[in-house]
Design a protein around this nucleic acid. Structure first.
Lengths: 179, 179
DNA sequence: GGTGCTAACCTAACACCGTTAGGCTCGTCG
DNA sequence: CGACGAGCCTAACGGTGTTAGGTTAGCACC
């Protein structure tokens, strides 16, 4: 199963984006520099610009891939469970923990939607919107809770001993009642 | 009313931190560079290091001030309302919208707690913990929701027409029932 | 076989970043 | 007067994203 977002790039650009992803996840956000990425590829930084317009476009490609993977994971989670909100929450947290640096990249700044593969953002949001019967306000509130929990956990903002499973449960229960 | 966090600095360091805050809020996060800050002060970047150890310490001072102001605002919000959770949510959102760049700085990365003025983080968290009767899991879930809403709004992650008031209400209602 | 085109790389440079080493000029205090 | 410290300076180092302009290798076509 090949990414639609990547399939729109030239083969060389695709390689660069895939290398960038490994670099980002393995060595952290600071490692995602054009020079370090180039070094990893065995070329010079300026050569990357033959394949990608600039760093924003590289990041947008990574973010698009992230959304695609989220869409797939979230759809599966709902399919496999009869408590869709709890399942989505678990899948959401899982994605963030498994690829913390990609998750940060995907959420830490305003999105350049014009650079994203079209539809990927909506596709990632659909499973939750379906799970709440199309209630957009409710979906947004639940998303905010899940993102808050995920990013505060990644950024180690909760005290060391905090029982995060319990906090997740607390939120999932709260959002389980009727609106 | 003078900040405790700032009062621990030398007078010159205090001026630098205050100038940094104006610069950050007026010109955005990219403007908070040692060189630009120095230019604003009429000196060279290297001179700042006479007064603050490094950029991390500067940021920690800004963050400490932010926590102090939050603590004050949140305490007031609870005092003035008999629906403490709704009042805290409103105050939280308000703080983030009024000082978006300081709010981002305060939340976007792991905290260097060793550089923070002691107690400020806890002081900002107390009003909510009190409002939920000391239930830490519940307080964390509510905080995650509020932070998620605030940062997603600041980062323009909701669709342009989204009714964020409604989403906030949705979350506040959800967390209003008994645990 | 020669010509032209394209892909993919290169070096060199620009303006910016955080930070450090080392030096200068004051005013104050003993 | 002499010492000292506060506060500033210049110059530099290694890092960042990015651009201009040049080279090389392979392939299509006459």
């Amino acid at each position: 199963m090949v990414s639609y977002a990547l399939s729109r790039l030239t083969p060389r650009a695709r390689e660069i984006v895939q290398t960038a992803r490994q670099l980002l996840e393995r060595d952290g956000p600071d490692a995602l520099s054009m020079r370090r990425l180039a070094a990893q590829l065995g070329i010079r930084a300026s050569s990357i610009y033959e394949h990608l317009r600039d760093k924003q476009e590289l990041e947008a490609a990574l973010i698009s891939v992230g959304f695609e993977e989220q869409a797939e994971l979230f759809a599966q989670a709902v399919r496999r469970s009869d408590a869709p909100i709890a399942a989505l929450a678990a899948a959401y947290r899982d994605f963030a923990r498994r690829q913390p640096n990609l998750y940060r990249l995907m959420t830490e700044r305003p999105l350049r939607r014009d650079l994203l593969a079209s539809g990927v953002e909506e596709a990632a949001a659909m499973p939750l919107l379906d799970a709440v019967g199309g209630d957009r306000d409710r979906a947004r509130a639940i998303w905010a809770f899940a993102h808050g929990m995920a990013i505060l956990e990644l950024n180690q903002r909760f005290p060391p001993g905090a029982d995060l499973d319990a906090a997740w449960r607390e939120g999932i229960e709260a959002f389980h009642g009727a609106s």
